[in-house]
Design a protein around this nucleic acid. Structure first.
Lengths: 219, 219
DNA sequence: TGATAGTATATTGTATACAATCGACTGTCG
DNA sequence: CGACAGTCGATTGTATACAATATACTATCA
């Protein structure tokens, strides 16, 4: 993979897992020296993050990690619920044996991470599973859109896992239902199951974020 | 606006209106010298176009304008129909007086362009109207997603206008219905009207693209 | 003392220089 | 005659140098 993409992945991880807090500044030269590269690939990486809504770039004033908020959560999830539903339906329509295997594999990975009680691992498995469904849709445009939407959604999920661990169980169960519908080739059910699962998560995460904002109103 | 964004706008126009044909190469230095700037902003501009699906960048091999195809059309419109529906519903929910004026204004512009018989002007007005609806949703995440999806859709619409002018009349009528629902504050009707309009366009454009592919199978 | 102009510094935006790689051409050898 | 290695040109990827601008600090004046 290219250097900017690789760097973007690393920074994205840091943002999703809160190693880089909301509001943190991203100074090009600083990052460049830290990774012993020049500003050129760093600039490219930051632009990738901007396209994903993870950082906000103000002209001549630099970039900072975007804040999380109830309003932003609602925006992201309103889009996500539609696009993920679309992906599940398409995956059910264009199902292929290899995708099927891949899906089951990743659900097991998800369950294993839950057993282990590792939040980060669970989120990683969850991202991998999502991507597998996206790929199974064989809709490259949809994949492109989702790849610019998912990372921000992951930030909220990670936030919520710490406060509402039952969300993980709901996620496993929901995904099992989605996978079953995809395997059965029923797009409508796959879409409905996906929307139900995401809508449920949305409401739970919303409570967590509301709490967060009540505690820290100065954000 | 920044230089890269301005340049991207210009190149985007050229691609949408077919001044840059599908498959055309975009050589960084060539563009740079043509506009009397350096490669740095050109590279950024090309990345913007890539994020919008207008150009395909292959590592170390350069960028070329993406091809249009029936398959790609279906991908784009499957996403578009959902996201535009969402935008219309949100706009209906969060309607404000200023948005209302703006909407009506742009529909009149659309009708005027149709009277004039100017394809390009009609498409420009159409883009402006779409953006107005997007903005009226007050959902910045949705706006971001749509801004990376619309340009590709515009390419197909421009293609179809030349062969199926009645599409423009249907667009005016459809948009009037959508605007009425938004003004009435009825999200469900706004969404349904939008999806009906886009679905209709989808089927007509599909025929045009099928024809195109039958004529030129070597693409 | 408070406001303001001026300056200094930090950081981004743009231009240029250098390195690496891909594709095409060509010449040689089997 | 065909296949293949080597070289050359074109183009992208990365690094560095320079220019422009925003912010913070300081000194001066009302």
């Amino acid at each position: 993979m290219g250097l900017p993409q690789e760097l973007a992945r690393g920074l994205e991880d840091a943002i999703v897992f809160r190693d880089l807090a909301p509001g943190a500044r991203l100074v090009e030269e600083e990052i460049a020296t830290r990774f012993a590269i020049s500003r050129s690939p760093v600039r490219e990486a930051i632009r990738i993050l901007e396209a994903r809504g993870l950082v906000l770039r103000e002209p001549r004033r630099g970039s900072r990690v975007t804040e999380l908020s109830r309003n932003d959560l609602d925006e992201v999830y309103a889009c996500r619920i539609e696009l993920e539903g679309l992906a599940a339906a398409a995956a059910a329509g264009a199902r292929s044996p290899v995708d099927r295997e891949c899906l089951d594999e990743r659900i097991e990975w998800l369950a294993a991470a839950r057993e282990h009680g590792d939040d980060r691992e669970f989120l990683r498995a969850s991202m991998a599973l999502s991507r597998a469904i996206h790929e199974a849709s064989h809709n490259r445009t949809l994949i492109r859109l989702l790849s610019t939407l998912e990372p921000q959604a992951m930030r909220y999920r990670f936030l919520a896992y710490a406060r509402a661990a039952e969300l993980m169980d709901a996620s496993i169960e929901g995904n099992r239902a989605v996978a079953a519908a995809i395997h059965a080739g029923d797009g409508d059910i796959a879409s409905a199951a996906t929307k139900r699962m995401i809508g449920h998560a949305w409401s739970i995460i919303g409570l967590v974020v509301d709490d967060e904002e009540a505690v820290e109103p100065a954000a």
